[in-house]
Simulated assay, not measured.
Amino acid sequence: MRSFGVHGSGRVVVVAGATSAAGLAAARALVSAGARVIATGRSGDRLAAVADAGAEVVVADATSLAEMTTLAAQLGQVDGVLSLVGGWRGGGGLAGQSDEDFDALLPVLQAVRATSRAFDQALQASDAGRFAIVSSTAVARPLAGGANYAAVKAASEAWARAVAHGFAKSARDAGGPLRTASVIFRAKTLDAGSLANAVVGLWDADAADLNDRVIEL
């Protein structure tokens, strides 16, 4: 069992959009490391496996600022937020990049926006707050058949980097050390186990070494 590193155990971590294999793996790894995990999803049935892994489950829409803000108020202390709303739609070259596919991919960005805004205050109040998203190597080399997908992922990365800037600016303005970090995990093909280990590892390093960092999986 891997435990949290220099910052200790007992962290409160929200896994937003936790009904995927990656969400289950991340929740299980965090619970095993000693965290209190709150996993969200829009389907109670699909959250059952995450609950069996030891996480507290909340039926809530991670793309909704109102629902995420309500959850943040209920939890109070939050040390980490992992935004995992995902999905892929594409193919057919540039002509095949339909508006319907683009709309279906927008929740990826919407969840990053909603979760980061709702939990911003709580994460900055933590002595080791961590915000993380999962992106794709398609951002660095977008293809015509995946233009919708790459564009949404690129926008999500830009938002996460803006979150990092906000964390750094707040620390500078307060005249204190940086304790909160925004991180981008980037993978070509996401391996749930690798992601889970990387998420737990976010508390092994100082925020100054993590903030605004892209971590290749």
Rank of each mutant, 00 (worst) to 15 (best):
V152N: 00
D101G: 10
L105Y: 00
V200F: 10
D120A: 09
L82K: 01
D61V: 07
T115K: 08
G41Q: 09
Q124N: 13
L143T: 15
A168C: 02
M68C: 13
D206Q: 13
L202A: 05
T115Q: 11
Q121C: 04
D173Y: 09
L195G: 03
S43M: 01
V85R: 02
V139W: 02
A29P: 06
R172G: 04
L65C: 05
P142S: 12
G23V: 04
R28Q: 14
W88Y: 15
R172W: 04
A22Y: 03
L106Q: 12
G145Y: 10
L109G: 00
G76V: 10
A22F: 03
Q74V: 13
A174Q: 14
H165V: 13
G76F: 07
K188E: 15
G93N: 03
Q110K: 14
W159A: 02
L123W: 06
G145V: 10
A104W: 01
R161D: 14
V13N: 02
A29W: 02
L195A: 09
G175D: 06
G92V: 01
V37G: 02
V108K: 08
S135N: 06
G96A: 04
G146D: 12
A198W: 00
L106H: 07
W159E: 01
R172E: 12
D61W: 11
A49V: 13
A132K: 02
G41S: 08
A168V: 10
G8W: 05
L82A: 14
A174M: 11
E56R: 06
F185W: 05
S43L: 01
R117F: 07
L202R: 05
S136K: 07
L190I: 15
V112C: 09
T40E: 12
H165A: 09
A125V: 07
E100P: 00
F119G: 02
E216F: 01
E67A: 08
G5N: 15
G129V: 12
V14D: 00
A73V: 09
T115W: 07
V108A: 02
A53Y: 00
